[in-house]
Design a protein around this nucleic acid. Structure first.
Lengths: 202, 202
DNA sequence: GTCTATACCTAGATAGAC
DNA sequence: GTCTATCTAGGTATAGAC
């Protein structure tokens, strides 16, 4: 008997775990947290319900992991966009556009991350996630103020408003069905964001 | 045997029903929808759990009634404020202030109405509620545009942003604990709202 | 390690006594 | 009409065979 698992065993377990997380993510994306029972997730992953507990000690632990992965990706993308070259105003516009576009293009996941009813554990993660989003926006707003491109303001509140605004149109997308109306919605959203931050009219 | 209930009987039933709704409202305000079990609500009303079903056919029906009452009051108040005398810009500022102040002063109820996890039936009502809120704001924005006080814009999106912004600071109130910091928060929120609608700087 | 079967718990809803 | 007691469904988690 070996003292340790062989590398092959470890990677196979890793793979099974990753597969489970991926399956859970897609279930949550499609039907939301409240309908994502252990049974449904296990079915989607092609394993038995009991086997889920080989990888996670509880349903909540799995849910938190699913949330962290997806939310982490989004924060990363927004962070990159907001730190690309350009004036703070340009970067803010681009950031809002990317944030909203990604949300509208993968509405199920975005809704799950931002708004869908979920376990308390996921709710706590969500609060942290929104804080990070807001911190990213606030940083750019502050840069804009320092460079004299934006008027003095509470950047945290502007950032909160931008997050709330995108969330609001996500939950009830004002009839943005096809690509054309989605584009128009994005244009209006970016314009609103720039007014909100007090950028001079272009 | 009488064919009809006597007026006294009817009003007594009415009163019991109202009492139940009031108790349910306070439970929801304090602990949220997800913790507001039939047992908890019945206890709060001083009746047995089974007796709830004398007044409502299901828990969801009771929840919807609770939501409608509370949400209806809020919409009514906002509608009145937004239709008081004054320019559209003044009314918009006052409307946002009242909306946010009421939310922050009765945070439990506001959170229940705007954001807390709830039954699907309540979720549907909430969507309608937010639409009404947005419609009220959008109306004033459109008046501002027509009077030349606000730049051309999609009023629905501005209205959505305002609703989303207040909801966002409600859920995570940026450390507004005492009356002083709440006042400062409200001032900043109103300033943000006016920028968002494109009102010229005062 | 993964399966099947099941224990167990929570919470909504119902039945029948009073 | 209201209470007590109970039924039922749905879903998490566990036990033991393979």
């Amino acid at each position: 008997m070996a003292y340790r698992k062989t590398p092959a065993e470890i990677s196979r377990l890793e793979a099974a775990r990753e597969h489970l997380i991926a399956a859970a993510t897609s279930v949550v994306t499609e039907v939301g947290w409240s309908q994502a029972s252990v049974t449904a997730v296990a079915d989607s992953a092609g394993i038995a319900a009991g086997s889920v507990y080989q990888h996670f000690s509880s349903k909540a632990a799995l849910a938190v992991e699913v949330f962290r992965r997806a939310a982490g990706r989004e924060v990363e993308v927004l962070g990159e966009v907001l730190h690309e070259p350009g004036t703070p105003v340009e970067r803010l516009a681009r950031g809002v556009e990317v944030f909203a576009r990604r949300a509208l293009e993968n509405r199920g996941l975005a809704y799950a991350l931002l708004a869908a009813p979920a376990d308390p554990a996921v709710g706590a993660e969500r609060l942290e996630f929104r804080r990070r989003y807001r911190a990213l926006f606030a940083e750019v707003v502050h840069e804009g103020i320092e460079e004299g491109l934006l008027p003095a303001q509470n950047g945290e509140i502007t950032a909160a408003a931008l997050t709330g605004a995108v969330g609001e149109v996500l939950v009830d997308p004002l009839g943005a069905r096809d690509e054309e109306t989605t584009g128009a919605l994005l244009t209006e959203l970016v314009a609103m964001a720039l007014r909100c931050a007090g950028a001079p009219r272009s």
